[in-house]
Computed example of a mutant assay.
Amino acid sequence: MTQASTIPLPADWRDFFALTKPRVMTLVIFTGLCGLLAAPGYINPVIAFTAILCIAVGAGGAAALNMWWEADIDAGMKRTSARPIPMGRMKPTDARDFGIMLSGASVMTMGLAVGWLAASLLALSIFYYAVIYTIWLKPRTPQNIVIGGGAGAFPPLIGWVAVTGEVTAMPLLLFAIIFMWTPPHFWALALFVQTDYAKVGIPMMPVVKGEASTRRQIIIYSILLVPLAAAPWFIGGTGAIYGVAALSLSLAFLALSVPVAFRQAQAGDGMKPEKRLFAFSILYLFALFAALVVDRVAFYQGWIA
């Protein structure tokens, strides 16, 4: 990693906030909260708030470390060139120190206030994203997003463990759902920004293996996602509300992946199927985890058996 060549200007709070990748953090917070709310048992509301805050701060710390390490890569990509370090609004070392501070504070607070198992999982998720994915996988293999998908899959597992204090089949399934969802979600994006990745030498799947291979793998992962998303219902961990929602949403996801898989994009065609799949994939995860919480509330209220 080499530092950005621009002379940094004084950064303000907006630049530090941008380092945390707030749009990504929204999904992290939501899935972590859903894992916490869906878990069986009781947790004090103050402790629950602390757990979600720690998940958010830890995710922000990992994102800041990612931006510090990839400053030069970000500068070369149109999609990321306006970030604080490439724009010269912040010293790379300030971003690094900010990321370390957030990461350390989130893990220690989680351990002291919530529990050390949840804190250990949070620490692992930060290490997974900042080191395993960012430093090791991303610049070396087209399977980077497949293996690296585990980084974004931790929040519901951590939220669940914050309540129960143990890792069981249900939170592992929630982890696996996000893990399986990540490749088709990210590759749909990579298909219409692949020139950016090629320009900076990042071996994303469309760049290294080509569009045809990437499109085939998108539909394969989308097919596998259907039974996996419904698995919590199949094992009796949820009721019919979640089960019907999971099957409906996953079949819609699969339907949108079909035109992506079986077409050859032409220059200037706008990549509409790929953009539709990417946009729906975000809605998919929000709706799926919302259904999980609604199902749990319905069970506790006696609306369903």
Rank of each mutant, 00 (worst) to 15 (best):
M204K: 11
P183C: 03
S103W: 00
V193G: 01
V163G: 01
I132N: 03
V24T: 11
V294A: 14
A169P: 11
D74T: 11
Y300D: 15
T93Y: 09
V294P: 06
Q301G: 15
I7N: 11
M170R: 11
E211W: 04
A18R: 02
G60T: 02
T80Q: 07
D94E: 13
R79I: 12
F262M: 06
Y133M: 00
M1K: 15
V146L: 14
S222Y: 05
A176C: 12
W136N: 09
G268I: 02
V226Q: 09
K21Q: 08
T31D: 01
V226R: 03
T238N: 03
L157Y: 05
I177N: 04
A229I: 04
F17I: 14
F253M: 10
A123V: 05
Y128I: 04
A18P: 12
A48H: 01
D72I: 11
T31L: 07
A230K: 07
L254W: 02
K209V: 05
F278M: 10
W187L: 11
T80M: 10
F286D: 06
L9K: 15
A230N: 06
P142V: 14
T109A: 11
T134V: 00
R296L: 13
G99E: 02
F154V: 07
T182F: 03
S213R: 04
M271G: 12
L137E: 01
Y221F: 13
I177Q: 05
A153C: 06
G35H: 05
V244H: 08
D269H: 08
D12G: 14
L53M: 10
P273T: 03
A130I: 06
L172F: 09
N44L: 07
F98D: 12
A71Q: 07
A245E: 12
I177Y: 08
A190I: 00
L33R: 03
P183A: 03
A11F: 09
F16A: 08
I202F: 09
F299V: 12
I223R: 04
G201P: 10
G236M: 12
L247W: 11
F16M: 09
F262K: 09
Q194S: 15
L9T: 11
V200G: 04
T214G: 09
Q217D: 10
R83G: 04
S222I: 02
A82M: 13
L117Q: 10
K91R: 15
V167G: 06
A190V: 00
L117W: 05
S106T: 13
I126T: 06
A48I: 09
A105P: 00
F186G: 00
T2N: 14
Y197T: 00
I29Y: 02
M180W: 05
R23Y: 12
M25D: 02
W69Y: 14
I241Y: 01
V297E: 06
A48T: 00
G210L: 13
S250I: 08
I52W: 04
P155N: 07
G115I: 05
V208G: 10
L283H: 08
A261W: 03
F49E: 00
A261H: 05
L65W: 07
